[in-house]
Design a protein around this nucleic acid. Structure first.
Length: 561
RNA sequence: UGGCCCAUGGUGUAACGGUAGCACAGCAGAUUUUGGUUCUGUUUGUCAGGGUUCGAAUCCUUGUGGGCCAACCA
């Protein structure tokens, strides 16, 4: 209930794009809303893309419109089918179904014909200068550019040269098609931008049909226009491109799509650029694109984030034009909030410490009921085996505890959750002085649910019957970087956290977890939320820690230091 | 040394000329057989100067700070 209130509070106001849309609908400028999500298939989607997906698909949903998935595949040398597939999968996993799945490459013929129109109008020319020459001729933000001799080539000749470009008569980089706009514009993107370049490269969809490929600025706006996109939403760095976007559409006299820009998502303690993420994968700093430490959607899925939690996160970060760096704590809040309601509780002991209940009969076993989810009575109960030899978490015992420690210590009492109260009566150590085993006595009349002991203990800890526990591998993740903004470092890889992955090799779990399947979510009681990894086998389950539970005690310990 | 975008608590985001609110984080307390959850209370903010106005976070202006722009990338 309270979360619903939070939701409604979060959506009571309109973000600036929604305001524009409502105004457009009110004035009749548009009668429906058409958006699109336009990724380049040259990498895996990350949490920043998730914000864009939620925005674009969310807008369409909210206003009864449609949202396309359109691959911006105009550069054959960088794009691959593997990425195409993963992108669609990620969009769907997030909970959105594209109205249509389209490709900018679907429009190559149309784009080519429009380029011919532009040339005929004297608004584009073929330039044989080198990239260096062209760059020099463009001037600088403070110095206007200077025209070269190709700028005044007659349309007929440009037409013929463009034809040669298309027919493959020139090698890569021999010449380019440029728009003829304004070499003195303060907006560098208007200083006769490139429209087409020659690339004798195999395209993942059009094969070898083309050897000239349109640049972003020549492809994007027209693709929007073809799809009758009413609100073309992109990130801030495209603001200077808008003038060119409008120019192309205006010169062609086609459907008037409009571009609006919002601030992209930045998360602290991670990097978001595809280039850097690719580097992390290729150089082995992480295992793969879906290594649970990565900010990619596939990695977050593997780690145990749910689509709902990511959508909620996108809602909470908002949409505005201000540069921002979101605290990962908000992401963690969103997944805890979601999983707290849904995840089944299970007992797991990450670092086992043996406990012998000295006054419990050897060989005896009794089964004790415990709830699967206290937040959800319909989740039911399960039985846990209790016996003479148990395991508890090493963290739950201290020989010399600090103040306010209310777990187990010599002479201290604690409740084993859903079982009995025990008192620590002795400790066994190895030669090095490490505690290897502790001895306790249990209070028979303190059985959970029928406690007549009259004892009151502050601590409640989880446990496992030694004879019934099973081995498991549990992977514990910490932030991948040690600094808030690794991208601003001289070398971002130097700030990689060497302890971002810790594997609990000796972890033990309750028997119910043996049948777990990849992708299932659990709360390991008192530890955190965990998700079964695809590496799991019937013999040895493997879990990823999605996020720990909030740990007030850890905070208290820090304060005491 | 050109142009464009932005500026509200620690982090985000509202307030559309009329009481600066919400969320996360923090802090304090209550409840709790998860030091979880839940509940209650609470600290912290309009970048600076000038102007318009009865009244400015909001409009104008100057400055400051941050971001973006000169790839045959998107």
């Amino acid at each position: 209930m309270s979360t619903e209130n939070a939701h409604s509070e979060g959506t009571e106001y309109l973000n600036f794009i929604e305001e524009i849309i409502e105004e457009d609908l009110r004035t009749g400028r548009h009668t429906s809303v058409q958006t699109r999500f336009p990724p380049e298939p040259n990498g895996y989607l990350h949490i920043g893309h998730a914000k864009s997906i939620c925005l674009n698909f969310g807008l369409a949903q909210k206003y009864g419109g449609k949202c396309n998935l359109r691959y911006d595949d105009t550069n054959p040398t960088k794009e691959e089918q593997e990425y195409v597939d993963s992108i669609l999968a990620d969009v769907r996993w997030l909970g959105f179904e594209p109205a249509r799945v389209l490709y900018a490459s679907d429009y190559f013929q149309q784009l080519y014909e429009w380029a011919v129109v532009l040339i005929q109008k004297g608004l584009a020319y073929v330039d044989f200068s080198t990239p260096e020459e062209i760059a020099a001729q463009k001037g600088s933000p403070t110095v206007p550019g200077t025209p070269n001799r190709y700028r005044d080539t007659a349309p007929e000749e440009n037409l013929a040269e463009f034809e040669k470009m298309k027919n493959g008569e020139y090698p890569d980089g021999h010449c380019v098609l440029r728009a003829k706009i304004d070499l003195a514009s303060p907006n560098m993107h208007l200083r006769d931008p490139y429209l087409y370049r020659i690339k004798h490269a195999h395209h993942h969809r059009t094969g070898d049909t083309w050897c000239i490929y349109p640049m972003y600025d020549w492809a994007h706006g027209q693709s929007d226009s073809i799809e009758k996109i009413t609100h073309s939403v992109c990130t801030l760095e495209f603001i200077p491109h808008r003038a060119l976007y409008d120019w192309c559409i205006e010169q062609l006299g086609i459907f008037l799509s409009r571009q609006y820009e919002f601030a992209r998502l930045n998360l602290n303690y991670t990097v978001m650029s595809k280039r850097k993420l690719l580097q992390l994968v290729n150089e082995g700093h992480v295992r793969s694109w879906d290594d649970p430490r990565m900010p990619t959607i596939s990695a977050m899925r593997r780690r145990g984030y749910t689509p709902e939690s990511i959508r909620e996160f996108a809602k909470r970060v908002g949409v505005a034009k201000r540069e921002n760096i979101i605290d990962v704590g908000l992401l963690e809040f969103c997944i805890r909030e979601d999983l707290n309601k849904r995840a089944l509780r299970r007992f797991a002991v990450l670092n086992p410490l043996k406990v012998v209940i000295t006054n419990y009969p050897e060989g005896q076993v009794e089964w004790l009921e415990t709830e699967n989810n206290p937040e959800d009575p319909t989740a039911g109960n399960r039985s846990l085996a209790f016996s003479r030899e148990l395991y508890i978490e090493q963290d739950d015992f201290m020989e010399n505890p600090p103040p306010k420690y209310f777990r187990l210590y010599p002479g201290g009492m604690v409740r084993l959750k859903s079982a009995f109260i025990i008192e620590c009566t002795g400790v066994e150590k190895d030669a090095a002085g490490h505690v290897t085993e502790i001895h306790c006595r249990y209070v028979p009349e303190s059985r959970s649910g029928q406690d007549t002991s009259g004892l009151k203990v502050k601590g409640v800890i989880h446990w496992l019957s030694a004879a019934h526990a099973h081995r498991a591998e549990v992977r514990l993740y910490d932030r991948l970087f040690q600094v808030e903004d690794p991208a601003s470092e001289e070398d971002f890889k130097k700030s990689i956290n060497p302890n971002s992955l810790e594997i609990a090799e000796n972890a033990l779990v309750e028997p119910a977890l043996l049948e777990t399947k990849s992708g299932e979510h659990y709360q390991f009681t008192r530890l955190g939320y965990f998700c079964t990894d695809p590496d799991t086998t019937p013999e040895k389950p493997v879990f990823n820690r999605t996020v720990s539970l909030k740990d007030t005690w850890a905070k208290e310990v820090k304060k005491q230091e």
